[in-house]
């Protein structure tokens, strides 16, 4: 299909606590028709959506509740349309986080826990929290068995991470990619059309833009398939 003719409508969910602008700019660069909004109506009319996030989980959940977006996001996911969740957005998918008191969206089983590093050998540098910077990831599936959003990304590619908490899915098959930081850490989740990254593709240079380009193409294809 021709992306020029079918610009998919993608909503970036604006819960006031996110780096929404860079996400919007990355999607536009990849050919999407982007609306940054906190409107449930706009979400329900979208072909695909991105749940971005930086900051604290309680603030984000409170904002989603105040905007009346919690149930519409669940409904969007149930409808089978692609949702890409980034960083804090990925952590919000879980039922519970060590970081906050409020329950999460409960779309993926498991929990969100803080990095805890004990004392290491004297003289050796300890691991810093937040886990900040470029780290390499490896996928749990070979390229042709991955969700289309992650195809064409070589194992060992570096992406930009900034987080103090990390996700521990209860079902290991939900883990799409891992990175290494004091042990294996969940870097990406795929559950149906729920796609999530702990890293920031919008800050990960060309390979990050490739993920957005894959997502935009995938949204266009699923939208076309729904119409057909």
């Amino acid at each position: 299909m021709n992306e020029q003719e079918h610009r998919p409508r993608i909503v970036v969910i604006n819960h006031q606590a996110a780096n929404i602008h860079s996400v919007g700019k990355a999607l536009e660069r990849c050919g999407a028709d982007v609306e940054i909004t906190g409107s449930a109506a706009a979400l329900s009319a979208a072909d695909g959506a991105v749940l971005p996030g930086v900051g604290a989980s309680d603030a984000a959940m409170r904002a989603l509740e105040e905007l009346g977006l919690v149930e519409p996001i669940r409904e969007f996911v149930r409808s089978g349309r692609p949702l890409l969740s980034v960083c804090l957005g990925m952590q919000l998918l879980f039922p519970v986080s060590d970081e906050g008191q409020l329950p999460g969206l409960d779309l993926v089983g498991g929990r969100v826990v803080r990095f805890e590093f004990g004392k290491t050998d004297p003289g050796s540098p300890r691991l810093k929290v937040p886990h900040m910077g470029w780290n390499s990831i490896r996928f749990t599936a070979p390229d042709d068995e991955r969700h289309p959003v992650f195809r064409g990304i070589p194992d060992g590619s570096y992406f930009y991470f900034v987080h103090s908490y990390h996700c521990v899915p209860s079902d290991a098959s939900d883990v799409a990619a891992e990175t290494e930081y004091g042990g294996p850490v969940c870097a990406a989740v795929v559950k149906g059309e729920l796609i999530a990254t702990q890293f920031h593709p919008e800050k990960s240079a060309d390979l990050g833009l490739k993920i957005y380009a894959n997502f935009v193409r995938h949204v266009a294809e699923t939208a076309a398939a729904r119409v057909a």
């Binding site: 660069r29 990849c30 050919g31 470029w134 064409g152 070589p154 570096y158 060309d206 390979l207 833009l209 490739k210 957005y212 380009a213």
Partner: peptide, 12 residues
Amino acid sequence: VRPPAVGRTRTP
């Protein structure tokens, strides 16, 4: 270090 741009993909 993150390798310098080798085998980089085309920017969309």
